[in-house]
C-alpha cells in the first residue's frame, strides 16, 4: 500500500489557481466572442484571488486576504466598463464577435 495523505495543503490551491489562470488565458486567446473572452479575464482574476488567499494562509499574513477585496472591487468596475462598451457596440450592430471587429487594419 502506498500511504499518502489527502489533506489539502496550500500547494494544492496554488496548483488549482495556476490551472484556472491557464484556462482563462487559453480562453481569451482562442474564443471569438467578446463576452466569453471577458468571462475568461474574470476567471483569470479570480484565479489570482485564490492564489492570494492560499499564499496568505501559507505565510500566516492577513494582507493577502485583504488584497482580494481590492481585486474584487476592481473586477466589478471592469464589468461595468466592459459591458458598457459591449452594449454600445451591440446597439450599432446586431452581433458582436471578434471577427466582426475588422475595421482597423493596416
Amino acid at each position: 500500500m502506498i500511504a499518502f495523505s489527502l489533506v489539502p495543503t496550500a500547494s494544492w490551491y496554488l496548483v488549482l489557481s495556476a490551472v484556472l489562470f491557464g484556462i482563462g488565458t487559453f480562453g481569451v486567446l482562442v474564443r471569438r466572442n467578446p463576452l466569453v473572452m471577458f468571462m475568461c479575464i474574470e476567471l483569470m482574476l479570480n484565479a489570482v484571488n485564490l492564489s492570494f488567499v492560499s499564499l496568505a494562509r501559507k505565510l500566516d499574513d492577513i494582507n493577502g486576504q485583504t488584497i482580494v477585496f481590492f481585486v474584487m472591487v476592481v473586477a466589478a468596475a471592469e464589468v461595468v466598463v466592459g459591458l458598457g462598451i459591449i452594449v454600445a457596440i451591440m446597439r450599432n450592430r446586431n452581433s458582436v464577435t471578434a471577427d466582426d471587429l475588422v475595421e482597423l487594419k493596416g
Partner: peptide, 18 residues
Amino acid sequence: ESQEAGLKYFILGGFASA
C-alpha cells in the same frame, strides 16, 4: 472604429492586468 478600439483595448488591457 472608436467603439472597436475601445473593446480591443479593454480585452487586451484586462488580459494584461490579470
